[in-house]
Design a protein around this nucleic acid. Structure first.
Lengths: 331, 331
DNA sequence: AACGATAATCGAAACGTTTCGAGAAATCGT
DNA sequence: ACGATTTCTCGAAACGTTTCGATTATCGTT
């Protein structure tokens, strides 16, 4: 690999001059620049990124850390973060936290290979985030409540979402509503449940333990939980799935049992993943502002990276109910 | 930021000793290690990744370069690459080539910030790839035919796929088949079309230019193209979408127009993305061996990174038709 | 007790850039 | 034509690690 030294030597100039010429500074005579550029071309010179980062001690790159790069949920988030990043002239890399503390993600956090990070990965501990964040390394967290000097939280109001979903069903006349929950250690899941519970309470509806099942946020889990529900014999008139993936599994289970949606049972999901639009009937669900969350996170992060300060460290976004065909009114 | 020098000073040892202790080498007395570790903790020391990379001149990281990080298609590919990467003790970062020559992806390629790359991004030019690849920087390309000393190609037989799809429709009795294509500069798209054309030709069926529309591999494009098709009035009995995302758009357009699938028109897609299973009717499509392609690519890449050599630089994988409900037999 | 062998530590030299202050050359005004 | 500016180029010092050869301390053997 040719280094800048080789280029300088071939061009007959000093290394520093070569560097300046290569970086397009105007502090160099056109003819010298010409020579340098030619030499670089001849040697097929490519600058060594690490040496540069080391010297400049910044990378103009941010990382988006996700627990699972391949999840369908993240698409919109990634897109919006990417758009903002690009428009700001920064680079974006996505990395996964699969592998926990040994993952690429945590390593990037620890070793500061980027200028900042956006984290949506429940399998990274609060502690790891807390001691990675510092003066020139702000972190935006999207999936947890976490206070720290260089930590900014962007939350989506899961409680409002859970409340809206339940309230919607209740206003449609439903009185017996099942809740299929996600993993108990998930902050999001807890929030959604809290909202659900609150709506029921406000309307004086009692919760039924037998209608509270767990599906672990997985499609298969939703499927199993729904089968249990069906087997219990006493079907509620509506089911609230704490995320769309589980609702998908539920839809499948109902179809297999010959139970019609929404005629026999109403179904509401949460997230508004792309698929929700394509099921038959279309899945009524709570839309998360994924695009907005991504764009907002990126903007704040850049503000923090560049100005080393941020006016507000705590953002909360609202959700919105998307009505499709999976719920009907009962009397 | 504390550096290793600070740690060494606080621990009262030489920098080199600190380095050794920090890296867990056994060439150091437990008590010294203890001192160093303690000092590091006190100073909240984190090693500077760039300095390390620079010195070691390798990163144990590979990049997966995709034209669009947010596409649903890539999920399985990412997953398999990730699994292999993790099992080999390497790190994986994904980056997008949105932005063309100025994208993060091309920058990573040029500046060798990783030890190797897997590329599936039609908007990166052959040239950029050719002059990035070199002795210690192998590249696996997944979406093009490209010869080069340090380039390995893994191809999926798109021609066979296109042929199978068309042949399947023809055998079901279809004689009027539309083709909704992707971007013309995409190698995959061309291959699929080629296979389609060949099947038609072999069965003596004429192609109709008015049934050949472009949807740019995007869902929205498929939707628009299908609306055009509908507006033309003369509907074919089957439509072959060059990828599933466009087929999804098509399904939506047909639904909106009150045209039933598969009763009124048969639809076949390409890729077998996860969503394909959940549409109603299920989307009949061509399954790409995404998982296999990813795992294979990663394996070969590591072989090349570590041994600096590879036995075969040219791999081709077969596709398979997945029958769901979106095509019916006509007589 | 002295000697060699082994183990632990050290100092200095890299890695490939960028940047800064200083010197040399060119340009300008008078 | 001469000094004062400006413009260009240069050498050297960083950036924070790792690594290698050298030095010192430690230990077991005779």
């Amino acid at each position: 690999m040719a280094t800048i030294k080789d280029v300088a030597k071939l061009a007959g100039v000093a290394v520093s001059t070569a560097s300046i010429a290569l970086n397009g500074d105007s502090k160099v005579t056109p003819s010298t620049r010409q020579k340098v550029l030619e030499a670089a071309l001849r040697l097929n010179y490519q600058k060594n990124g690490f040496a540069m980062d080391l010297k400049r001690s910044q990378t103009r790159t941010i990382a988006l850390i996700l627990s699972d790069l391949s999840g369908p949920y993240y698409s919109e988030l990634i897109r919006s973060v990417q758009e903002v990043t690009l428009s700001k002239g920064y680079d974006l890399i996505a990395c996964s936290s699969v592998g926990g503390r040994d993952s690429t993600a945590v390593k990037f956090l620890r070793e500061k290979r980027v200028d900042g990070a956006i984290v949506l990965a429940h399998n990274i501990s609060d502690e790891d985030i807390l001691d990675a964040a510092r003066e020139r390394f702000p972190i935006v967290v999207l999936d947890r409540v976490l206070q720290g000097e260089f930590i900014i939280q962007v939350l989506v109001d899961g409680m409002q979402g859970g409340y809206s979903a339940a309230d919607y069903l209740i206003r449609k006349g439903h009185r017996s509503i099942a809740f299929i929950s996600g993993p108990p250690n998930s902050y999001d899941n807890r929030q959604r449940y809290e909202g659900f519970r609150k709506a029921l309470e406000e309307h004086g509806i009692a919760e039924m333990p037998k209608w509270n099942l767990s599906g672990g946020f997985q499609q298969e889990g939703g499927y199993q939980a729904t089968k249990m529900l069906v087997m219990q014999g006493d079907l509620p008139s509506a089911v609230f799935y704490a995320n769309d993936e589980m609702a998908l599994g539920g839809l499948k289970a109902f179809a297999e049992a010959g139970i019609r949606v929404p005629e026999d049972v109403s179904v509401i999901g949460y997230d508004d993943i792309q698929l929700a639009e394509y099921t038959r009937p279309g899945l009524t669900t709570i839309r998360q502002p994924k695009y907005e969350a991504g764009a907002l996170s990126a903007h704040i992060l850049f503000q923090c990276v560049e100005k080393h300060t941020v006016d507000n460290k705590d953002y909360k976004l609202a959700v919105e109910l998307v009505e499709r065909g999976s719920c009907r009114a009962v009397n």
